[in-house]
Simulated assay, not measured.
Amino acid sequence: MAETPIRFGILGCASISLKLTKKLSRSITLSPNSTLDAIGSNSFDEAKKFAAENGFPPSVKIYGSYEAVLDDPNVDAVYLPLPPRLHLRWAVLAAEKKKHLLLEKPVALNVDEFDQIVEACEANGVQFMDGTLWMHHPRTSKMKEFLLDTQRFGHLKTVHSFFSFAANDDFLKNDIRVKPHLDGLGALGDAGWYCIRSILWACDYELPKTVIALRGPILNEAGVILACGSSLHWEDGKTATFHCSFLSNLTMDITALGTEGTLHVRDFIIPYEEKSASFSVSCKTGFTEHVVTTDLPQEIFMVREFSRLVKNIKEGGSEPESKWLSISRKTQLVLDAVKASIERDFEPIQVWV
C-alpha cells in the first residue's frame, strides 16, 4: 500500500521569497512522504502565476490569502518563507490552526518573539523545524562522528565559521534582508544564523557564557547589518569566532580544532556538488579527505525528516520532537547576544537560557 503523504501548504510566493519557495516547493513535490496541497499569497494572481511557472499539477489549490491555506482542513503542515517581521503573526496562527510548522530562518526578530511561537507550538501539539538545510545532509552526521571521536579529534578547543557572499547592487537595495521593515537582522540573521548554528552544532549545543561582537560591523543607511563578526566564550575555555557578510567573496567554511585533530569543511551551507559533498580531517595519523555521496539534495532530506515527524504525530500518536525548538532557540539566543553587543559598543553579553 502506498504511503499517505503529508500535505503541505506554502504561505507566500511573492518575488521577495521566490528563490526559497521554489526550492522547497520542489523538495515537497519530490520527497516520497510529502505532497504540495496548497499555496497562498496576498494576491491570487501572484499565486496562480507561481503555480504555472513551476508546473504545479491542477490538484494544487491556489488561494489569494494566507488565512485560506491555514483554514484548509486538508493541509497538514505549512512552509513559511515570509519576511522575518511576519513570522510571529503567521507562525503563531499556523500553530493555533494545528498546522505543523516548517519555518524559514531567522525564526524571529528576537528570542521573546520566538518564545511566543514556541508556546503556540507546544500548546497545540504541532511539530516545529527551522529551514537550516545543511543540518539534514548525510555529510553532517559523518562530520559529527569525527568530532565525537576522542582518539582522533580529542576535545574541542575552538571553532571558526565563515559565511559570506558578494551581493549585487540590486540585492543591496531591494532584497528583504536589507529592509528594516521586512527583516531588520540583515547579514546577521541570514548568513550569521548559519555560522552560529555551526558553532553550536560543533559544541553539542552547549551555549557560550559570553558573546562579544567584533568591532567594525558594516551597516547600510537604514541601519541594517551588511557584515559583522563575533567571538564566543565558554566557561571551560572553549572559544569560537564567526564572520558573516553580504559584501565579501563566497565563503562557506567551518574549521573545528581539537586537542588531537582538526575538521575542515569548505561548503557547509550548500555543497558545491548536489550529489557529492566532502570534508577533510587531519590528526596524528595523517590527512584524509572524506566524500559523502547521496542521490538527493539536502532540502529533500529536510522535508522528508520533517514529514516523518509529522506522520508519527498524525498517525502514530507521538509527541512532537522538541529538539528542533531547542536548537532554534539557542541559535536565536546567541544571535540576540551578538546584536546586543553591537548596540552596546561591543561589550560582552552574557547568554541566558
Rank of each mutant, 00 (worst) to 15 (best):
T4I: 12
I6A: 01
I6W: 07
C13D: 03
C13L: 06
S15G: 07
S15Q: 13
I16F: 13
T21R: 02
R26C: 04
T29H: 06
S34F: 06
D37G: 00
S41A: 11
S43Y: 07
E46H: 07
K48F: 14
K48G: 00
E53H: 05
F56Q: 01
I62S: 01
G64F: 04
S65W: 06
S65I: 04
E67Y: 09
N74C: 05
N74H: 11
D76F: 06
L80E: 03
P81V: 04
P84T: 15
R85C: 09
L86S: 12
H87S: 02
A91N: 06
L93V: 12
K97W: 07
E113Q: 14
G125I: 07
V126G: 01
M129G: 00
D130W: 04
T132Y: 06
H136K: 10
M143T: 05
K144Q: 14
L147I: 06
K157S: 07
T158D: 14
F163V: 11
F171K: 03
K173E: 10
D175Y: 09
D175T: 04
D175K: 05
I176A: 08
I176S: 05
D183M: 09
A187T: 05
I196C: 01
R197Y: 14
L200M: 06
C203E: 09
V211S: 01
I212C: 09
P217L: 03
N220W: 09
G223Q: 10
G223L: 10
C228F: 07
L232D: 00
D236P: 05
T239N: 07
S245A: 04
L250N: 13
T255W: 05
T259Q: 08
V265C: 08
V265I: 12
R266D: 14
F268E: 00
P271A: 01
Y272G: 15
E274L: 11
E274W: 15
S276C: 11
K284A: 12
T285L: 10
T285C: 07
G286Y: 08
D295K: 15
L296W: 15
E299P: 03
N312H: 13
I313S: 05
W324Q: 01
L325H: 02
I327H: 14
T331G: 14
A337R: 02
